[in-house]
Design a protein around this nucleic acid. Structure first.
Lengths: 256, 256
DNA sequence: CGCTTAATTGACTCGTCTCAACAAAAGTGG
DNA sequence: CCACTTTTGTTGAGACGAGTCAATTAAGCG
């Protein structure tokens, strides 16, 4: 196994072969707000996982013991909640620079599985080491807390979306969300190449696959987007945004 | 104003009049896993907010600058998302010992308002101080991260609930959740005195008030609970739990 | 070039929302 | 303390959105 040997060597000699400081994603990731020298200390506890995951492979399974958190380096990942097939639900999509596994701290094991949507490379960070280093580097602690706080906020927004918005607005919200995250990463904001299937999208948005498919068609026929399979072009982002912000029913302020 | 004077005095002289170590809630709250002496340091940055909030009063509003986090000492609070009336949505209910405000760290202001459901007392903890102290006390940092992680996990569970479960199971899940949290706090697990209105419950679960009302009636007629207004008795907790765990459709494992 | 999987579209069904009326508490003021 | 209004909760009838079932087309992939 030539490959395996090669990979092993890479790992043993090059835990921080490419420093976090030199990483293109450092503005989105843990290093944000950390001094140059401290970044090297961070890099020293980051290990790149040897072979990239291929489409469909699991980074970890639901129930796995929690040892490390991961940052997507390239590719994308979906979080899947639910042990047995059938009640499987996608709870999130993660792009390069995003940190996953933080939801496992409390219980000590991963509540969801992480599964690659395409060929995906990740950085692995032992949690014990991360926690210790966060104590030593104030900026790291701060950024870690910020990222977790942002995650809470995002999940809450999704709660509101899933709990109250009609199907069309859910899809519009997802497209806008992906668009802005793509843009942050240097991809064109209006040309999305979705790595996830309609099935994944439907599961994430709490809809049936058929509904998602119909919605893509409808948004296209209304001139808001152009769809060709997983290639989506946002033609009228403002209209999409207006959809999402749409005030539904007009209720009055009511007591406590 | 005798009361006001008294309260003011209490605050100025007794920021940590009742130490966190002596607090009945310390097993649920930040002090968990912290040494006795360190608890005093924690107590020194905790201030009790002077007059308790009365039903309907706000602890903070959506958009308020983020300065502190709060722990419910007594009473209960709802988190309300949405600026103007109409798109108001309840995103959570918080009981004694629970920490709120962590979702504000990332953006620097509160995304949701916190509103008292009944007479409610809180502890206020300046975030700058908390962050600094977390660096000095490993156990505190750990507990803070654990709490945030738990919050992420909980919000995610709610996402799954709201995205995929029928109305009846949503209500059942809420009742069971409240039941176990009541129990942790020393209240009887099967006799719930709900502090929130049907309207709040409906908003939280993403349902219409009428649907919630009907569901209470239905669960009662099925013998699972006994309802008299906000007094709920859980007669068959196992049946409720079975409802929640119910596997819906049987889908097959499907690729990436 | 078949075979399997992914995606689209149509017809019908069902759950939940909306509208509307009503009942029971809980305040409010004379 | 009682009539008053205002909340809060319950219940019914009809409408609509989204799910299910089913058939068809278009891609991947070996």
């Amino acid at each position: 196994m030539l490959t395996a040997t090669c990979e092993t060597k890479t790992r043993s000699e090059g835990t921080h072969q490419v420093s976090c400081g030199a990483c293109a994603l450092h503005r989105l990731c843990l290093p944000l707000g950390i001094d140059k020298e401290d970044i090297d200390r961070l890099a020293s506890i980051v290990s790149r996982r040897r072979p990239p995951l291929r489409r469909g492979e699991y980074l970890f399974h639901a129930g796995d013991a929690f040892r490390a958190v991961y940052v997507i380096r390239a590719g994308s990942v979906k979080m899947v909640n639910g042990s047995r097939a059938g009640d499987e639900r996608v709870t999130g999509f993660y792009l390069p620079g995003e940190l996953i596994g933080l939801d496992a701290i409390a219980a000590g094991n991963h509540p969801c599985a992480a599964r690659a949507l395409e060929t995906t490379a990740v950085c692995e960070i032992g949690y014990a080491e991360l926690e210790a280093l966060a104590r030593a580097i104030p900026g790291l602690q701060r950024q870690l807390l910020r990222l977790m706080s942002g995650e809470i906020r995002h999940e809450r927004d999704m709660m509101v979306l899933l709990g109250g918005m009609p199907a069309g607005e859910r899809l519009a919200a997802l497209l806008l969300n992906l668009s802005s995250r793509f843009e942050q990463r240097g991809f064109p904001a209006r040309e999305l190449r979705l790595s996830m299937s309609r099935h994944d999208i439907a599961s994430y948005l709490g809809l049936a696959v058929e509904t998602v498919s119909r919605l893509f068609s409808r948004l296209q026929s209304e001139g808001l987007i152009s769809v060709r399979r997983r290639q989506v072009i946002i033609d009228d982002g403002d209209a999409l945004a207006r959809l999402v912000a749409a005030p539904l029913s007009v209720l009055n302020e009511n007591s406590p």
